[in-house]
Each structure stands twice: as C-alpha cells, then as structure tokens.
C-alpha cells in the first residue's frame, strides 16, 4: 500500500514507469539480437537501424508536441513525399540544388501553415483536416513529378546515406539526436513547453492564463511541415532518388512511434526521452527480427502489439486502482 502511494505521488509516475519499461525492452531486444547473430552488436546494426528509421524518428518529434497539445498531424508523410518530389522536379529542371532545397523547405512551412490555419482559425478537427491535406499534398506531389523518378543527385549530397566521416553513425540518426535534444529542451525546460502541456491538459485554463493557444498550435503545425519537408530532402539524398510515392503511408508509423514512446493520445502527457527510447526499441527490434529472418511486413505484428500494450497497460492498471479505490470506499461506508 505504501509503495502504491509513493508511486502515486511522483511527478507523472506512469511515464517514469513506462520509460523504465522501454529501457528494459531495449536491453531485452539487444540481448535477443546478440544471441541470434554475432554481428548484431557490431556497428552495422546500429548504422542501418539509424538509417532505416531516421525520417520517421525525425518527424515523430514535432508529432510528439502536436499530440501533447491534443491534436494530430496525419499529413507528415505526404509532406515528406511532396518535398522529395519537388526537389526531384526542380533538380531535373536544372535548378540550383541549394535553391531547390530552400523552396522545398518553404513549401513545408506553407503546408504546415495551411494545416495550422484550418485548425486554429476555422476551428476544424485536426484529424479530418490532416487527412485532407494528407491526400492533397500527396496529390500535389503526383502533379509535380507524376510517375517519374528523379535521380542523379550530386554525390556530395547522396553521401548522406553513408556514415558520418570517421564514425559509424548514420547522418539520420545524428540529426535525429540533435533535433531530439532541441525538442527535449523546448518541451521540458521552456515556457513554451509548459504551455504545450497546459494546452493539452486543460485548454481553457491555458487560455485563461495568458497562453496564446491558437498561436502555439499554429506554430507547431508550421514546424511539423518544415521538419517533414526536411525529412523529405534527407530521404531523397539517401535513396539517391525521389518519386511521388516517397514515404507513402509513413504517417501512421510516426504516430505509432510517438504513442509507443508514452505520449498520451488525449494530450498533456509524454516526454521526448520516451520517444527517443521508442525509436531505439523499434530500431533494435527491427534489427533483431531481421537477424532471425522475419520479413519486414511480419514485423508489423510486433509493432502493432507493442502499440496496443502501451495503451492497454496503463489503462488496465488504472481500472485496477479504480476498482481498488471503489472497494475501499465501500468498506468505509459499510462500517
């Protein structure tokens, strides 16, 4: 009973426990992988896991903030695809690559601003809006690039698919870690971060406390658009090619990572550390399942189960403690 109480009193206790669980899971998958393949703990695993997961992981960061405010952005993968297609189109048509990249990022900002405006100014539900822009942005990608594939990007850029010089670290992963640090600091140590949590937990109180709820939500969608466009550039250079279906369907992976990282779908709860751990667990899991020849598609089962467990577990413990409390109350009434 006393341990139960101490758990109750900790700051966001469920999350602490969840992150601890993620660490255990990470260790477990690594031991499992190492057992199956002697190469597992080598740098290749680490590198490829980082490479495979980079874009999803990067897009999961703004997604985390958006979900914490109680909204969602399903258009991220389409924005990635649009950015990749646009880069390809502009490059094929002889644009300076830097200029092309700049335009892609601006398009990302504009796309995010459209989401943000529809959600904050018109007050439309974010899930419906971003399903709409998911279709719209993918559609524009199709218009831009059609069924063509853009190739032949300068080697100085496609080098991004190799490890960072003199290390075994994938560029994706490094960028993710740097961004995660920034997002982590913003979310957990700034006034903006506090506001984001307050908006997710009690939007009215947040507004009554002088927090500019709409402006913050709008900005988060802009950031999400920008980062997704950036992920599109990264993806293109790593694959050395781009097509209109680049990153098709990744949005749900991004959401899954965030939720698996302990972000509550109702908003107001979660940490960046959790998301980073979730990325690591997924990466390591994928590597170890690949090591025992489980196909990428079949690995979805594990992904899905983990996602379900991550929401079922806190829910079940919650209803368990509810029942316990109810029983206790009944006892008090009875005496």
């Amino acid at each position: 009973m006393s341990t139960f109480k101490t758990l109750l009193s900790g700051r966001s206790r469920a999350l602490v426990r969840w992150e601890f669980g993620l660490v255990l899971l990470l260790i477990a998958t690594m031991i499992f992988g190492a057992n199956e393949s002697k190469y597992f703990l080598g740098w290749q695993t680490f590198f490829f896991a980082g490479l495979n997961f980079g874009e999803i992981a990067i897009m999961a960061l703004p997604m985390t903030l958006i979900i914490i405010t109680g909204e969602i952005d399903l258009s991220v993968a389409s924005m990635l695809g649009l950015s990749a297609s646009l880069l390809g189109y502009l490059f094929i048509h002889g644009w300076n690559i830097w200029l092309a990249m700049g335009i892609c990022l601006i398009v990302g900002i504009l796309g995010g601003a459209l989401n943000g405006a529809l959600i904050t100014i018109l007050g439309l539900p974010s899930i419906a809006v971003t399903i709409g822009t998911l279709t719209l942005y993918r559609g524009i990608a199709l218009i831009v690039l059609g069924s063509n594939t853009a190739q032949g990007f300068p080697v100085s850029f496609t080098k991004l698919s190799l490890p960072i010089a003199h290390t075994h670290i994938a560029w994706d992963f490094a960028i993710f870690i740097v961004l995660a640090l920034i997002f982590g600091v913003v979310l957990h140590s700034t006034a903006l971060g506090r506001s984001i949590f307050a908006i997710g937990l009690q939007p009215e109180t947040a507004f009554f406390s002088g927090i500019r709820v709409k402006r913050i939500k709008f900005s988060l969608y802009v950031v999400s658009g920008l980062i997704s466009a950036f992920a599109g550039l990264l993806y293109t250079f790593q694959q050395s090619s781009s097509a209109s279906d680049t990153g098709l369907g990744l949005e749900l992976n991004v959401v899954a990572i965030a939720l698996f990282g302990g972000i509550s779908i109702f908003g107001g709860r979660g940490t960046i550390i959790g998301v980073v751990l979730a990325v690591c667990v997924f990466g390591s899991l994928q590597a170890s399942l690949t090591a025992i020849n489980v196909s990428a598609q079949a690995q979805n089962i594990v992904t899905g189960c983990l996602l379900l467990v991550s929401v079922l577990l806190p829910n079940l413990t919650q209803s368990f403690s509810d029942t316990k409390r109810k029983l206790q109350r009944r006892k008090v009434v009875g005496t």
Binding site: R194, E204, T205
Partner: peptide
C-alpha cells in the same frame, strides 16, 4: 479554467 488539474502544484502556481 483556473487550474490544470493534472499538473503539479508548483507548476500551476507558476503557470
């Protein structure tokens, strides 16, 4: 409107 019920006491005071 006054409080963020699930947020810690000190953070509510400082909000």
């Amino acid at each position: 409107q006054g409080l963020v019920m699930d947020m810690a006491i000190d953070r509510n005071v400082a909000l």
